[in-house]
Simulated assay, not measured.
Amino acid sequence: MVDRNSNVTADRASSNAYWSANIRIILISLAVWFFCSFGLGIILRPMLSGIMVGGADLGFWFAQQGSIYVFLVLIFVYAWRMNRLDKEFGVDE
Results as ranks from 00 to 15, higher is better:
residue 26 I to S: 13
residue 62 F to V: 05
residue 91 V to W: 07
residue 60 F to H: 12
residue 92 D to E: 14
residue 89 F to N: 09
residue 69 Y to N: 08
residue 20 S to V: 08
residue 74 L to C: 15
residue 49 S to L: 11
residue 70 V to K: 01
residue 27 L to T: 07
residue 10 A to L: 11
residue 93 E to P: 14
residue 45 R to I: 14
residue 27 L to E: 12
residue 11 D to I: 02
residue 77 V to C: 02
residue 71 F to R: 01
residue 47 M to Q: 13
residue 79 A to H: 11
residue 24 R to A: 15
residue 87 K to R: 15
residue 68 I to Y: 04
residue 39 G to V: 06
residue 67 S to V: 01
residue 89 F to K: 06
residue 66 G to Y: 01
residue 10 A to D: 07
residue 89 F to T: 05
residue 10 A to G: 04
residue 19 W to G: 03
residue 44 L to F: 13
residue 23 I to K: 06
residue 80 W to D: 06
residue 45 R to L: 15
residue 31 A to N: 01
residue 27 L to Y: 06
residue 59 G to A: 08
residue 85 L to S: 03
residue 60 F to I: 13
residue 67 S to R: 02
residue 43 I to Q: 09
residue 14 S to H: 06
residue 27 L to N: 11
residue 30 L to R: 01
residue 30 L to A: 07
residue 50 G to P: 02
residue 63 A to D: 06
residue 78 Y to H: 07
residue 8 V to I: 05
residue 19 W to E: 06
residue 12 R to F: 05
residue 82 M to Y: 04
residue 59 G to E: 01
residue 32 V to T: 12
residue 9 T to V: 12
residue 46 P to Q: 15
residue 28 I to T: 14
residue 81 R to Y: 15
residue 78 Y to M: 05
residue 91 V to R: 09
residue 82 M to A: 02
residue 23 I to W: 03
residue 9 T to C: 04
residue 64 Q to D: 15
residue 63 A to K: 05
residue 49 S to Y: 10
residue 3 D to L: 15
residue 59 G to K: 01
residue 73 V to E: 08
residue 92 D to H: 11
residue 89 F to C: 11
residue 18 Y to V: 01
residue 89 F to L: 08
residue 40 L to D: 01
residue 10 A to Y: 01
residue 65 Q to L: 14
residue 54 G to V: 11
residue 91 V to P: 00
residue 3 D to E: 14
residue 88 E to K: 12
residue 25 I to W: 10
residue 32 V to M: 12
residue 42 I to S: 14
residue 44 L to D: 00
residue 16 N to V: 04
residue 49 S to G: 14
residue 71 F to C: 05
residue 54 G to A: 14
residue 44 L to G: 07
residue 15 S to Y: 14
residue 9 T to E: 12
residue 40 L to A: 04
residue 32 V to R: 07
residue 54 G to K: 04
residue 16 N to P: 00
residue 53 V to A: 02
residue 52 M to W: 05
residue 17 A to F: 03
residue 45 R to G: 10
residue 26 I to H: 09
residue 85 L to E: 05
residue 8 V to L: 03
residue 87 K to D: 02
residue 77 V to S: 03
residue 53 V to D: 00
residue 9 T to S: 09
residue 79 A to Y: 12
residue 91 V to K: 03
residue 70 V to L: 09
residue 14 S to T: 08
residue 52 M to Y: 04
residue 63 A to L: 08
residue 2 V to M: 11
residue 34 F to W: 15
residue 55 G to N: 11
residue 27 L to P: 02
residue 67 S to N: 13
residue 52 M to L: 12
residue 22 N to R: 12
residue 46 P to L: 14
